[in-house]
Amino acid sequence: MESASLPVGHAGEHEHHGPPDFHRSARIDQTVLGILIFILSEIMLFASFFAAYFFIRVVVSPDSWPPAGVELPVLIAGINTVILVSSSFTVHYALEAIKHNNHRGLRLGLGMTWLLGATFLFIQLNEYVHIGFSARDGAFGSIFYGLTGLHGAHVFVGLLLLTFANIRAWRGHFGPEQKNHLGVEVPGIYWHFVDIMWIVVFVTIYVI
């Protein structure tokens, strides 16, 4: 996807000329627009699970939610929320740093973000182990694991993208020009989405 934002050809390196420059009819960067549209469809994927959640909770069992005997660890999940939300700030910091050509700040920010994200995932897995019901335990269990698991998968993908950004940051890539730090900006946008989605999941599942 990267090269698409660098449409300038590599004339001379090959026997025929590269893709000619195209006319930019919008100011937004293509990769950024791409990730935004992708996020739109991700939101709809979550929406389909929320639809299932709505039917299970509001239509089928409005009175017994969560089912008797189930105690959700709201406190731990709350702490986890704080962890994930703070990682949004660190990734933002990393982006700001590289915009000012501060490579140390970039590495610090990206590294922190990665660690915070991994911690979140670890705590989440730990919660699964201790929560006392499984995904097979009725629709409640299924939708709980369905929504948090779907979100966890997104954290995992986000971490993967951040891994790439980290590797490249340590190799000294990226720079203050936008086209040179898309590799930070785009995973960053995705990461913000993962965060906001978690807040929605957290509020629906644990709080209300």
Binding site: S48, A52, G141, S142
Partner: peptide
């Protein structure tokens, strides 16, 4: 995608989104 994931999870993992006996709709 969501609908088929859920059916697949029901089939492969024994989850319940649409089984009324298990509180599904």
């Amino acid at each position: 995608a969501g609908a088929q994931f859920m059916v697949l999870f029901e089939r492969a993992l024994g989850m319940n989104f649409f089984q009324f006996l298990e509180g599904g709709d």
